[in-house]
Design a protein around this nucleic acid. Structure first.
Length: 469
RNA sequence: GGGGCUGUGGGCUAACCUGGCAUGCUUCCAGCUUGGGGUGCUGGCGAUCUGAGUUCAAAUCUCGGCAGCCCCA
């Protein structure tokens, strides 16, 4: 890496290519290749998320990519919200299709007609499903790998319940799942109820997780929507209760995309490159053998390195031994750039002392007793996670400030709290005048704090504001 | 939604204004050397995004397409 992180935009573009996260040289807009290091980290992340969803009773399914036009358009707000960027399949082979097929920009309209088939009575609840797939949105704006593309890999959870109360509980469950998920990535966030005009098309309300990036802009990195019975009415998801009376189901949906990796890259990386949290790094520990001056020494190092590798593998740690012909120093730079959280050095000196060297990507190098290898490695991962978390929390806290005037919004950077009268007009004017600062929403589940609107001065509510990706 | 800039070996880049032999670094390959933080030397492979136009001649000028970056909304 020869671009400092302070030049965040260039740093990001450089590091995602150099570290093997994506290759943007494929000639279709917004569709890069997610190469093995990047996709590996995404898969590790999603495996954690999928496990959390399974534990809370969501069953994994796979729904079709395509949805016929009439089904897609049934919910009026929904199609209005997505209509402009839907890709359509209009031809099959040489024949024009009589019924156009939409390529999913999200899967409500594909899943919910099936939900209507599956749900007949109150005993069919709760219905909780999730899937990890790609979705497609024909973005016209500038795209950015992992942040805004036309093809997005994500996990979406969709659930149906008997009533509003159960749906509310599901919202809380979603918050819990995503909070745990982001804790394993050491990424602090703000979970905010979006303003009404910015909610998911067709939802009652939307909660979104914003993660602060180093340039002071926030990245929306997960969403949770309460759909109430809006979609149930359109797709006839109805059930008989105990008394034989008909009711509409209440639904929720959550989504979390590969943006989580963009957030981890942005928040944790440094001038040397990436720093991946141990939980999602494709390789958690990289062993670098240091050859000796004599062949005998080198042979001993090789043998010891293999022994250490086997021991760690046996403990379920993702470990790799770099026996390439490069010099040790070059290997250090290489794996640091890729963000491997822990490096284990083994050389003749260590063998003589019955030690191995642990070098943490977050800083610090220490010899440890060979007999305590597994334990020390686990401790190192915990320490790395803690270091990342503390650093990220500190940065976030340092960049949330109270804005009392338009001037504060114009001059400051990061996240602001400021009053808002809840009229979109004021929000729009603020965005224009400040060069992009927009209302991100209100804290969920907290008593709304009164505050005068930062724009018009009328009575309003304390809201969160920031520039966003 | 609007505007600007850019596209040269795998990566970065010079030449572009003023049309005429495509420069350097790096990576990669081979060999030797070296080995606890990017060893050194020698040799080698490899490029003007795409289509049309202007011209004796286009990386260079003009127009379109595709792709990327930046700024504004």
């Amino acid at each position: 890496m020869n671009i400092p992180k302070s030049n965040f935009s260039d740093w990001y573009n450089e590091v995602i290519y150099s570290a093997g996260i994506v290759d943007i040289r494929y000639p279709v807009k917004g569709m890069p290749i997610y190469t093995s290091w990047g996709f590996g980290a995404i898969r590790k992340s999603f495996a954690i998320l999928e496990e959390l969803l399974e534990q809370t009773g969501h069953g994994q399914m796979l729904f079709p990519l395509l949805v016929p036009e009439d089904l897609f358009g049934a919910e009026g707000e929904h199609i209005k919200g997505f209509g402009g960027e839907v890709l359509w399949v209009t031809q099959g082979g040489n024949e024009t299709l009589e019924r156009k097929l939409a390529v999913r920009p999200t899967s409500e309209t594909i899943m919910y007609p099936m939900f209507a088939q599956w749900i007949r009575a109150h005993t069919d609840f709760p219905l909780k499903v999730h899937q990890t797939v790609t979705i497609y949105r024909h973005e016209t704006k500038a795209t950015k790998p992992l942040v805004r593309g036309r093809e997005v890999y994500w996990n979406e959870a969709h659930s149906a319940f008997r009533n509003e109360k159960e749906a509310e509980e599901s919202i809380r469950e979603g918050l819990q799942i995503y909070s745990e998920f982001y804790a394993t990535l050491a990424l602090p966030f703000t979970a905010l109820v979006r303003p009404d005009y910015d909610k998911f098309p067709g939802a009652k309300y939307s909660i979104a997780f914003d993660i602060l990036m180093p340039d002071g802009k926030v990245l929306q990195a997960a969403t949770i929507h309460n759909l109430a019975d809006n979609f149930a009415k359109v797709y006839s998801i109805q059930y008989d209760d105990e008394k034989g009376e008909k009711h509409y189901a209440h639904q929720t949906t959550f989504g979390l995309s590969m943006r989580c990796l963009a957030a981890a890259i942005g928040v944790h990386g440094d001038d040397k490159g990436l720093i991946l949290p141990p939980a999602i790094s494709p390789i958690q520990a990289i062993i670098i053998p240091i050859p000796g001056k004599e062949e005998k020494e080198s042979a001993a190092v090789d043998a010891k390195a293999k022994e250490v590798k086997a021991k760690l593998e046996g403990a379920g740690i993702r470990v790799h031994l770099d026996c390439s012909e490069k010099r040790p120093g070059e290997k250090y730079y290489h794996w640091e750039m890729k963000g491997v959280p822990l490096r284990i050095e083994i050389g003749p000196r260590d063998i003589a002392n019955k030690k191995v060297m642990l070098a943490l990507r977050t800083g610090g190098k220490k010899p440890i007793d060979e007999s305590k290898l597994v334990e020390a490695t686990r401790d190192a991962f915990a320490e790395i996670l803690k270091t990342l978390e503390e650093k990220a929390k500190k940065e976030l806290e340092g960049k949330i400030s109270k804005a009392k005037s338009m001037d504060d919004l114009k001059k400051g950077t990061g996240i602001f709290t400021a009053g808002w009268c809840e009229n979109q007009k004021c929000a729009d004017e603020v965005k224009t005048e400040t060069g992009g600062v927009e209302v991100r929403g209100f804290l969920f589940d907290k008593k709304k704090e009164k505050a005068k609107c930062v724009k018009c001065g009328k009575d309003g509510t304390l809201a969160y504001w920031a520039k966003a990706y």
